[in-house]
Amino acid sequence: METILNIREVSKSYQSAGTSLTILDKISFSIQKGSTVAITGPSGSGKTTLLGLCAGLDRASDGSVELNNVVLDRLSEDQRAAVRNRHVGFIFQNFQLLPTLTALENIMVPLELRGEKNIRPRALELLEKVGLSARGDHYPVQLSGGEQQRISLARAFSNTPAILFADEPTGNLDGETSEKVIRLLFDLNKEAGTTLVIVTHDMDLAARADRIIRLKSGVIISDEQKTYV
């Protein structure tokens, strides 16, 4: 199976009050195309930092990150932005919809950025898939938390990304809404054949993934692959 994300000996440290604070320490793993992976761990274990490095939002202090055959280490911020637009989708804990854009416009942004034409039908199709076709003209502030996250899902899939990063996607939702959103996420992912990387401390959510990587104090303490009998 083809590798989509390859992390080799990646470390991340920050200078804080004159001392070096290591958040991630020589992490290595790789993820196969089409798989679903959960990265879990307690608060402060380095999950979000790892997600930032994998998605090219930040640069590692040491080691190498290769995303969909592109080595991100030496790319400028703008080059990494271009890689994100082409290959990556995001789902955030606090939804991060652009407050000044309507739901439909939020979905269209990644496609518009690529300069694609005739994107409205595709956006409307995704809006329908997340069950919010009647709310396309609404602004984020007019939507509930669950609805905002569903729009966020539609936006994440709009540019048919090769890999989708979800940062605590149900962190701000109640149990019932969480369940609906997660089901939708996995359904859309299955349909699109996208690789899904979820950062969460919700073990029920993590259990739905093919593989669970557990972090503690910046190192991988376990890497379990679900086996299907």
Binding site: A81, Q96, L98, V109, P110, L113
Partner: peptide
């Protein structure tokens, strides 16, 4: 909003 746009691939 700017950081979200940057995540979605908008250059600086």
């Amino acid at each position: 909003a700017i950081s979200t746009l940057r995540c979605l691939g908008v250059k600086a």
